[in-house]
Design a protein around this nucleic acid. Structure first.
Ligand SMILES: [Zn+2]
Ligand SMILES: [Zn+2]
Ligand SMILES: [Zn+2]
Ligand SMILES: [Zn+2]
Lengths: 129, 129
DNA sequence: ATTAAAATTGTTATAATATAACATTATGTA
DNA sequence: TACATAATGTTATATTATAACAATTTTAAT
């Protein structure tokens, strides 16, 4: 468990308390009062937080979410569900899924230690509507 | 099998003959001699080609690749391997993988009909180096 | 404590990716 | 034909991300 730097902590706190993934410039607007003024300051903190597995990037949305899976110490294997109506994003923590993917070998017998999986569908709320 | 419009065909041909995923502005530079002058013309064609499953977007790379999986009629379930050194991208067509993911249900019993999976690792060539 | 390396920060400018808005033209089909 | 739908053309602008350079702080070894 490493300690975060000032900017990293400010930005992690914001993301961590957010119910939804945040975009880099949304983060920027929300931390300007705390002295973080430039995009690069945000992106550098984001890069580091992703690297150490505290947050993940939702690639299809260019947005960042705190890791809610205690087993994700490193940003190497991530799976999310994304509602195509309300954009709710949930981190999936399924032992069987992670085991299946960790053991997956392609035709050439290649194994992958890192993956990103994004499922799309309708969340419970949006399904009933 | 639907017929492509002029711009769609030009852009699909370019992507289809490319050994690597192409970015939107790379595409733009390469089709300007054919009369496609503006980013929006490229993005509109890309959107349509993705929609009908002729190409896929590699989300982590903001790049587009032709579908090489005859069973992908729709852009709903895609899986790729990406080499982190040479950036070689390959579409994975594995019956067991697609079956597993198509049948995956999360904790709430939610099923997903659409997903995007990106595996990261080293390709054969880069592994031996 | 001194020092050197590594990490973090600050700042300005710019590159790269993508969409809004509006007008026009082409295509399918009833 | 006539209508609806899809595709195109064009300009401007929004959004996402990095380059380049200088300074400061933290870490860890001497
Ligand atoms: Zn996680
Ligand atoms: Zn929803
Ligand atoms: Zn495909
Ligand atoms: Zn490679």
């Amino acid at each position: 468990m490493q300690t975060l730097s000032k900017n990293q902590q400010i930005i992690f706190d914001l993301i961590n308390k957010s119910p939804e993934p945040l975009k880099a410039y949304t983060i920027l607007y929300n931390v300007q009062k705390k002295g973080i003024k430039a995009p690069l300051q945000v992106y550098r903190a984001l890069d580091k937080l992703v690297e150490i597995g505290k947050i993940h990037k939702i690639e299809s949305r260019n947005a960042f979410i705190a890791c809610h899976n205690s087993s994700c110490q490193v940003a190497k294997a991530t799976a999310f569900s994304i509602c195509e109506i309300c954009e709710k994003v949930t981190e999936i923590s399924s032992d069987s899924l992670s085991k299946y993917l960790a053991n997956f070998k392609d035709k050439d017998g290649m194994k992958y230690i890192k993956y990103n999986l994004e499922f799309f569908g309708l969340c419970k709320k949006c399904k009933v509507k």
